[in-house]
Design a protein around this nucleic acid. Structure first.
Lengths: 328, 328
DNA sequence: TTGTAAGCGTTATCAC
DNA sequence: GTGATAACGCTTACAA
């Protein structure tokens, strides 16, 4: 591997001079610069980033810590984070926690040990800012799931309003017996449930059911089946993420429940397929691209200025009204 | 930051001893080991991986270089790669090339400069093994898209057979006027087109059309519209990835073309929504989990034994017959 | 069984 | 303007 020493030798200068030419941060005689650059080109020299990181005590890497990149919501965010990082010359380490606090801890430690410049982080419910890892002062930006602290940057959705609006939409369209399926592993599910209940209360109604389940397709399916078999049959189901929506839809299809006639369906998160199914699904779309990009920008701000006061950015969802919740 | 020196001082030993205790690769007096481990625990010491990488001239990171992690095929592979890497104590750098050779080059260089242990790589068509980056001898495993070389490990689908089988399925079910939509950016699309044509030839038929388009939803949509508007109306469309399938489906829905009565639809890649749409879509499912895991294992093999002779592993697709290609 | 010290490839400091 | 050199934190000959 060709190192800065080889370049220095080839150009007949010291390594310091090569470094300065490349960093372009000191006056260099034009003639010298030329010789150095020629040697660099000649030898196809590329600085070793590991050595640079060791010396500088920081690296151009950020961690993306989420539960599962296969959740389309996180896929989209991940891509946006990667794009924004790429533009800044940073690269992204992908870390899936599976909602497992041990994996989470392990990854945060890893990122710390790798001298990561920062972390974009959707924490498990068990995560606590008081944990030892956090004390290391790696820059964090929390996304999707609020944590109790005003000491850290966050990019969140206004979950209560979003769920409220989605619920009101169902109510305005004539549905009265609403059931909600919420993720049980994050604050997000709880907040959306709050919005759901608030809307029902404003309409002086009670929910038929509000289930907290593991936010996966299978659980959406199972929960929907149990709603269908239960005594109090809802006329609309609201789900708090796209995996639950997919499960619910599958169950309704299997049980030949007609949508929206017998049962409306509306959920969080836009997907490729939301418009492709019949009827297309009404969703509260989250601005995933914006979340990812904003979080990354916030992170870079903090990396540059560690002491700037923390910001929480609250973004709004967009209601995409489609056939699955048509007026009855 | 607490370093090995601090631990050494606290334990009253040299840094070498601390290193040995932690690496567990040399005889250490029990008493000494105990003192060292206590100091480690006391100080909450964690070895700096950057320094370790610099010293060892390699890192526990691998690159995942694909066109776009949002393609569900790559999302699934990415997750499998991450899982397999995690088990080996490696972490994964996510690199999206957008089929752009410049981004690809840049990322390969970055991985090189980061001393990445290896790369799992779905190359653009322009990529050439002769390129300078490859000469650096970073371990590669090529996935999804064959390259001309028997010098590198690959994990591929038997695209020709898979496309052949999918086409035969349509033919066996009574469809005769077949159109194919294939990705134009990779060898994959070409191979699938070959299988498509081969099957038609075996049935002594000609395709109605075979389009090569950018493998994205919009292009699937546009191509399908032009098929519908064209003179020779197909009775079945075969697509070479799930984005094209989604676009085609959207177009058929918009034009109120009944599936499968007026037009069958079948494509590559399983998705969340394949079963949710009505009718559900017949697909040639790729074993994404297995591709990702196999590629990662192959990569680790090569990292351990750089000189072992290259392997190409060809996996088979699984035909999932569903309503969109029902017998006519 | 343990310590000393060299060296991985950079860059910043201090001389000149 | 440029060159020596120390230092970043770790591991591994080589010595003892």
């Amino acid at each position: 591997m060709t190192s800065i020493k080889d370049v220095a030798k080839a150009a007949g200068v010291s390594t310091a001079t090569v470094s300065r030419v490349l960093a372009n941060n000191a006056p260099i005689k034009t003639e010298t610069r030329k010789r150095v650059l020629e040697a660099v080109a000649q030898l196809n020299y590329r600085p070793n980033l590991i050595a640079r990181s060791l010396r500088a005590q920081k690296s151009a890497k950020i961690g993306l810590v989420v539960s599962d990149i296969r959740n389309p919501f996180f896929t989209a965010i991940g891509r946006a984070v990667e794009d924004a990082s790429y533009e800044q010359g940073y690269s992204v380490l992908m870390c899936n926690t599976d909602e497992n606090p041990e994996k989470e801890e392990l990854y945060l430690n890893l990122l710390h040990d790798e001298n990561a410049a920062g972390v974009i982080f959707s924490p498990t419910q068990q995560f606590s800012l008081a944990s030892s890892t956090y004390k290391t002062k790696m820059p964090f930006v929390i996304i999707d799931r609020a944590v109790e602290s005003k000491e850290t940057d966050m990019v969140l959705l206004d979950n209560i309003s979003a769920a409220y609006d989605l619920t009101v939409h169902l109510l305005e369209n004539g549905y009265r017996k609403l059931a909600g399926l919420f993720g049980d592993v994050s604050t997000t599910g709880q907040e959306r449930s709050r919005g759901f209940h608030k809307a029902l209360k404003d309409y002086q109604l009670n929910p038929v059911a509000a289930y907290f389940v593991s936010p996966r397709i299978q659980q959406g399916y199972d929960a929907t089946l149990s709603l269908l078999n239960g005594p109090d049959h809802p006329d609309a189901i609201l789900t708090s993420n796209s995996l639950l929506t997919a499960g619910a839809l599958q169950a309704l299809r299997d049980k030949k429940v007609s949508i929206p006639n017998e049962m409306a369906l509306a959920g969080f998160d836009e997907t490729t397929w939301g418009e492709l199914v019949d009827p297309p699904i009404t969703v509260m779309a989250q601005p995933t691209e914006e979340i990812g990009r904003t979080a990354t920008e916030l992170l870079f701000q903090r990396i540059r200025e560690p002491s700037r006061s923390p910001k929480t950015i609250i973004l709004n969802g967009t209601l995409m009204v489609r056939g699955s919740s048509a007026k009855r």
